[in-house]
Amino acid sequence: MDVAQDLAEYAAKHANNVLERDVPIEVDAGLLAAFDNTPVDEAAYADLNPHLLSLTLTSTASLLASLFTLPRAHAQSSTSTGTGPTATLPPPKTLLPREKALPKPKQPTKWERFAKEKGISHRTKDKKEWDEERGEWVSRWGMGGKNREGEEQWLHEVKNRDDADLDPASTLRAARKARVTKNLKQQSANTNRAINANASTDPAIEKARADKVSSRTKRKSEIDRTLLITGTATASMGRFDKKLEGEPKVKGVKRKFEANELPSGGGGAKEERERQMGVLKRVERGEGKKVRKGGEGREGDVNARKAVRYEGKQQRARQKK
């Protein structure tokens, strides 16, 4: 008992060894840190460890004092759980760098973009659907779901024109599976699109990416191009030539179409209407494909170019005879 008392007295004596500071100690309660910006006293520094202890004591005391003045959070619940008073910490004053970049906003899917352009509002579907015949709520999908109703019924109506070996259940199942696959494909296309859209615009990353396309890869693409051009030099345009290993394939130009739907804002709706009206008018006027000059012409007309050539051939054949 005596020893404990002695220890407590000793500790109490040392607790008061707080130094006088010229510059007040800065406290960042959010980070549980204190900054003592007074220059270190050289004379006291010579006696290193006691000086460090008293410095720490001073700054820690002031840090703790400010922590104890903070507003308390959930005072009731914390005493009942036995954790004692809990201080609500303010946001930190010292800014430290983040670990990762801020999260990018979610990219809309193709459908979401279309729906926005067209002003279609989102409609949530219930998981369950009312079944008139059974008179109960059934799930839309999954076990016993409404979407596989046709597959699971025991009797199917077969039309006269259907094949004899038609299995309606498996046909319906295949169609459902195809819908699932299509949806998965669209999903992955959406994620890919989102990844590309969210690709970093950070200059450092852009530079690293550009560096990756090194001179070697540039040279390789040049060689590929030369190979493609020289291949067409033979009479058969390279069709019957021996193929080299890893020879590049000729990729044609993909056709590109203008979007059918234009965004409704910014005069898009008007332009779309005009375009559609234009098509209708052309149909009304009876214009079909554009006719090439000197080409085959319309049905019933004589193709003059072909007729002249044909006549010429006939004449030459006659002369030979």
């Binding site: 549980l32 008073p85 201080a87 910490l89």
Partner: peptide
């Protein structure tokens, strides 16, 4: 101490 906490039990 980089991770900011919302609150701190003072006895901890």
């Amino acid at each position: 101490n980089g991770h900011a906490l919302p609150s701190l039990p003072l006895t901890s």
